[in-house]
Structures are given as structure tokens and as C-alpha cells.
């Protein structure tokens, strides 16, 4: 099974590479747009941290690390979730889930591999890693094996949290195809909009909401608090992966419920003439 997944990833990576490099103009354009988007999306907070020498109680370097972490955490779902796999509501709402269901492979395997596009978004990975390394060096961060393990766990947790959260919203399209087609986009946007901010200043209610109901805080703020020693409790190191696991379980359950409904009613977005309602 693992070999098949790797083969499919290789296939989709090849297709992605061919798509981006189909001509020189497209190649330059994709990467230019990618780089501009990546830099512009973090520049605001970065400039703010520079101007105010941090965002209390975070120092400037800690904010830079947080921004880099958020960029890398966002890269993984983006890399695996292209072609509306991350915004799965669009596929469900439009009746395109049928395209997966007729394939001779499990649905989960199709979803895990179909959106794999490693070349797309590469330029948001490089600045993210660069920001973390730069800030880490300035803070004198010691990358010991236990710290690296915690880092990897929290990074995987942050990525999984975004993916599961996007899926949870997306699966709402099983029940409200038209309405949920765009709400999932708004929800994911909110996660990424707030991922670069330290959320310590928020009131307890809002802070709790932002690590549970809309877990934007899990994208970078909470894991970085633990990794940078702003929260010394050992539980803080495990909180993000644990929350991500809970979100993944919730997403799986919702998917099962949704599939049951889909099996009964299918998609009503298209008329019998093939036009979208």
C-alpha cells in the first residue's frame, strides 16, 4: 500500500512539474507569483514586529520564528491539497466526488495523492525555513535531538490541524452543497490570516475559541510558545499534536456521516442537462 502511495505521489509530482514547466513564461510566472504571495502574506506582521520590536510578550525574533513556522506548517497541506482536495467542499458540492468513487482505489488514497503538487508553493517553503533558521540563530536556539523531535511533532500537528479543520468545514457540503462550497474557503482563510499573530493578548474566551473551534492558534502560536520556551509545561509540547489527532478523528467521523448521506442523495448541484444549479 505504501509503495502504491509513493508511486502515485511520484506520478502526480511528475504531472505537477510538467504543468509548471510547460513553458518558460509559465514557469517564471508561477514562481514569481508564489514568491510575491508568500512574502506579502507575512510582510505585514514582520514589519509590525520590526517597528514595535516584537508583539508583546513576544520579542521580534520570536515573532519571526512564529511567522516562519506558520509558513512551513501551511506548506504541507497546500502541497497535499491542491486541485480542491484541501477545499474538499467544492468537490463534494459540485458532485465531483463521483469522479473519485468510480476509481479502482479507496477514497482516502485518492484524496491523499490526487492533490500532491510538490513544485507548487515551493517558494513559500524556502522563506519559511529561512525565517526560522535566521530567528533561531539570533535567539541562540539549541536544536538538540529532543527539541527537533518536538519541533517535527508540532509541525506535523499544525499541518494536520489545518487539514482536518478544512476537511471538517468541507464535509458540511455533504449536507449543504451550495452554502458550504464557499464557507470552507472563508474558514481556512481565517486560519491563515491569524496564523502569524501571537494571540496571548486575547481574552480567555477568544483564545480558547482560537485553539478549539477555529484552531488558528494551533497553526503557529501555540506550538511556538512551547518550542520557544514561552510555555514551560511539558503538556504544551503535546497539546498541538493531540488537538490535531482529535480534529482528525472528528473529520473522519463527519466524513463517514457525510458519505452515508451522499450515498442516499448524491449531489443536486447539476441539472439533468449538465448545467450547474
Amino acid at each position: 500500500m505504501a509503495a502504491r502511495i509513493l508511486r502515485l505521489w511520484a506520478l502526480y509530482a511528475y504531472l505537477d512539474g510538467m504543468w509548471i514547466a510547460r513553458d518558460f513564461r509559465s514557469f517564471i510566472f508561477y514562481y514569481l507569483a508564489d514568491a510575491v504571495t508568500a512574502v506579502a502574506s507575512v510582510a505585514g506582521v514582520l514589519l509590525l514586529a520590526q517597528r514595535f520590536d516584537g508583539i508583546p510578550p513576544w520579542t521580534r525574533d520570536q515573532v519571526v520564528f512564529l511567522l516562519g513556522f506558520g509558513m512551513v506548517a501551511r506548506f504541507v497541506p497546500d502541497m497535499l491539497g491542491n486541485y480542491n482536495v484541501l477545499h474538499i467542499s467544492r468537490r463534494i458540492g459540485r458532485g465531483q466526488l463521483d469522479h473519485i468513487l468510480v476509481q479502482p482505489q479507496p477514497v482516502w488514497m485518492a484524496l491523499l495523492t490526487e492533490g500532491f503538487a510538490p513544485f507548487w508553493g515551493l517558494l513559500s517553503l524556502a522563506p519559511g525555513v529561512g525565517l526560522m533558521v535566521w530567528a533561531g540563530q539570533r535567539m541562540g536556539l539549541e536544536a538538540t535531538p529532543p527539541w527537533l523531535l518536538a519541533f517535527a511533532l508540532n509541525l506535523a500537528g499544525a499541518s494536520a490541524a489545518l487539514t482536518a479543520y478544512a476537511a471538517l468545514w468541507g464535509f458540511a457540503a455533504f449536507f449543504q452543497p451550495r452554502a458550504a462550497e464557499e464557507i470552507s474557503g472563508s474558514a481556512v482563510d481565517l486560519m491563515t490570516d491569524l496564523k502569524g499573530f501571537p494571540l496571548d493578548a486575547l481574552g480567555p474566551g477568544l483564545r480558547t475559541a482560537l485553539v478549539t473551534v477555529i484552531p488558528a492558534g494551533l497553526m503557529a502560536w501555540y506550538p511556538c510558545r512551547a518550542l520557544l520556551g514561552l510555555d514551560h509545561g511539558i503538556a504544551a509540547l503535546w497539546a498541538t499534536p493531540a488537538a490535531a489527532a482529535a480534529l482528525c478523528c472528528a473529520a473522519c467521523l463527519t466524513f463517514r456521516m457525510g458519505m452515508k448521506r451522499y450515498a442516499q442523495v448524491g449531489s443536486s448541484r447539476y441539472t439533468s442537462f449538465g448545467h450547474r444549479r
Binding site: 449543504q176 493578548a201 486575547l202
Partner: peptide, 26 residues
């Protein structure tokens, strides 16, 4: 056609509340 549009607005309100708190801290 979009009975869930209110949720989108709720998310906007949440974002606003978060930004206001961040500005106060800054």
C-alpha cells in the same frame, strides 16, 4: 442560496475581535 453566509460574517467578527486585542497589546 447560501443559508450559511452568517457563519462567514461570524468569522469576520472573530477576526476583528482578535485584531483589536492584538493592537491593544502592541
Amino acid at each position: 442560496e447560501n443559508p450559511l453566509f452568517l457563519l462567514t460574517y461570524l468569522l469576520r467578527l472573530l477576526r476583528l475581535a482578535a485584531l483589536l486585542a492584538i493592537w491593544r497589546a502592541v
